[in-house]
Design a protein around this nucleic acid. Structure first.
Lengths: 248, 248
DNA sequence: CTCGCCATACTACCATACTAGTTGTATCAG
DNA sequence: CTGATACAACTAGTATGGTAGTATGGCGAG
């Protein structure tokens, strides 16, 4: 049996010892929640986590606070801390913010142009993403996808924008990891990446914006299906009609 | 002499006792930094603040961590915690994110329409803002301005968007409070608010978007002037040319 | 058998204690 | 007088203790 704690321990070992215990815990727990190692609804506890990693409760507590600000756990005073269920509303709101910011980024990239080394890196990332198609390595693709979008944002010098995107991505990625190792349409997503880069290089703002919007609306397709298949992962008492409301 | 600590104490008393000590401290310190009661560069210290409010170091520490995530202080381990100087780059990046999100909000508001009670509240806020012109009550206007934008975001059901806006606003508001009680063009800003609401009611997406963008680019006008007048408030070694770079 | 109460065992929050690292200063050697 | 060095006085980071509130299970009364 593959114990959950074992996997968490592995992630813990991967973190850098130069970071503070608080930051290391935050990263480990964040990753674990996003990748569904810690399923929605699971109760955590300062003491329990502290014991598991042989640290004191205080840095654990601080990591919990940070996670609650990211909307990944809910701290109920004197009751406990729980991994929040996936909320369709939260997912759609996160998607909304992400589209807003990433469209602005790609508009700026197209209007002002990107430095050649950034374009080179984007093309490099596209090539490496293509190599994920055949073995259907979804996890690896997700990592490269994140780097693709990060490169774009930092390429136009918008670090705060990337921070925001990274923050809201947590909500969205949790949904993506639900569908692993299913038939994520890697090839289609790469095509969309290619379209974005091509539009930037062609200096076609409207096209670049359109390509980015289309790319970021893929989740509208998969979300209803996932709600059906994994109802226990989602916040109950939410109606499905939210999605139609959200599509512009 | 009006002691700084006295003002902080007053803010402290205003906070609700139902909140946790950590949250109360966070709000007080955040407000104090934004309103320049705690000037850029000032050294804070967990112990010092803890003693001032008669609480222990722990919640102070947690408030500091939160402030550092908001980009308002810098925690240097084993050295100290400092109110960060205003960075032109950070201001421009915050403005970029804000424009991206608020434009998306106003587009959605125009496309989907706003509930009548929201429109009513917007008009009410406009009226109350007008009453700030004659006494030139800039502080009061800023509060109503914040409520105006908050009402818009929540009016289209985008709470996450508002959270992001609120977060980046901290950087921008600190600049605004530099110019208080100067000749902030309250009347012009209200006119821009009126334009936004009018465009939403006319269901003119392009116009609404344009009005919002113009509104949020006002800071381009005031920033260079403030850098000149208050150089000690700003991060040194930053060139002024950043602004031209940022204007689309 | 059912309902209400109470003891118990949790929880997170805050306070306090201790550790480890940085900085400025005073002292002493050259 | 100048330089290096040791020490004192800070800092934040982590660990541990105490408190108040909440959930729960069992027991007794009806």
């Amino acid at each position: 049996m593959s114990n959950i704690n074992t996997k968490l321990q592995a992630l813990w070992q991967e973190t850098s010892e130069t970071e503070s215990v608080r930051q290391r815990l935050y990263h480990v727990l964040r990753q674990s929640i996003i990748q569904m190692l810690l399923p929605p609804g699971k109760a955590l506890s300062e003491k329990e986590v502290a014991d598991a990693f042989s640290v004191s409760r205080q840095p654990v507590r601080e990591a919990f606070i940070r996670l609650s600000e990211a909307g990944l756990v809910e701290v109920r005073p004197q009751r406990g801390t729980y991994v929040v269920k996936i909320s369709q509303a939260a997912v759609l709101e996160a998607r909304f913010v992400r589209e807003a910011v990433e469209v602005a980024v790609v508009r700026q990239a197209t209007a002002k142009g990107l430095p050649p080394e950034v374009l080179t890196e984007l093309h490099d990332l596209l090539e490496r993403q293509r190599r994920c198609i055949e073995p259907h390595d979804t996890i690896r693709f997700y990592q490269l996808d994140e780097r693709f979008h990060k490169t774009l944002s930092l390429g136009v010098g918008q670090q705060s924008a990337w921070k925001v995107i990274e923050e809201v991505r947590a909500q969205l990625d949790r949904v993506r990891y639900l569908s692993v190792p299913d038939t994520t349409p890697i090839a289609r997503l790469i095509d969309q990446h290619v379209d974005i880069v091509a539009a930037i290089e062609d200096r076609d703002i409207a096209l670049a914006e359109q390509a980015m919007r289309r790319h970021l609306r893929e989740i509208f397709v998969s979300l209803p299906d996932l709600v059906q298949r994994f109802p226990e992962m989602f916040d109950a008492q939410e109606t499905i009609s939210l999605i139609e409301e959200a599509i512009p």
